[in-house]
Design a protein around this nucleic acid. Structure first.
Lengths: 127, 127
DNA sequence: CCCCTACTTCGACAATTGTCGAAATCATAG
DNA sequence: CTATGATTTCGACAATTGTCGAAGTAGGGG
């Protein structure tokens, strides 16, 4: 099952999110909004070779295999990771595009007009 | 105003998240992982003057005032917005440090790992 | 072939969450 | 002081979610 690759939405504080954009993003965010899944994601991403098999992951948790599998499925469905079976083991790796998209959503809030594709600089507005 | 950067946690794919870090971040992410709250956040952030009163927000939803208030409370408790009462109305504004912190979590993943398997290509998806 | 290990799917259950209506609080106007 | 409008708190309820054990699929080795 391969996931949807959606791309949309300027940084969250730039302009009001449309209803359907918000709904889409919420699915993605719900997928990361869990301690177990956050750790799974970071374990997979930082694992040597950029991938980890389920057997590398389950040991780190006090949870049963079905539960870990359930969380991995949610991450996969959201398009955050991608799994591949090689022989006995199933290997997961991060889908960088999706993670990057999340990063862009919460990009530093700047004044509404850096115009071109130039990098955005952080600027805090003082009250 | 000084640009405070709250630090916790390198980008998610950099190193395994500690259990308590994951728990903490999950609270923050749960706060944004809802369509209504995402829209609230973006409406507040992109509103003229950088702030919006509750009365500016409720009209955009098909929800009752108590429900909007509930969502605002969750955002506030998570440290994503800050509210201030001025006369009859309550004004909310974004707390940029917290939003920035989320952005840093999903910062573009650099070189994932010492080549041991297939390399991961980092691609930037822009809107 | 049968078994064993790795992983996923299924069905059930308790805990959490989003929503509402009713009632409370808070500030201004009369 | 009372009335009115803006917002929050409270209590209840249905829907969603995280977890488990049991059973299913897939691959490798005797």
């Amino acid at each position: 099952m391969t996931a949807v690759t959606i791309q949309c939405c300027a940084p969250i504080a730039r302009e009001p999110l449309a209803e359907h954009e918000a709904a889409e993003l919420a699915v993605l965010l719900k997928a990361v909004a869990d301690p177990v899944r956050l750790r799974l994601l970071s374990m997979i991403g930082s694992h040597a070779g950029g991938e980890a098999c389920v057997c590398d992951l389950t040991g780190a948790f006090d949870l049963t295999a079905p539960t870990i599998s359930h969380h991995l499925k949610i991450l996969r469905t959201a398009g955050l990771i991608d799994g591949e079976r090689r022989g006995t083991w199933v290997y997961y790796r991060i889908v960088p595009e999706t993670v990057t998209r999340l990063g862009a959503l919460f990009a530093p809030l700047a004044d509404p007009a850096p115009a071109s594709g130039a990098p955005v600089e952080v600027e805090f507005v003082s009250t």
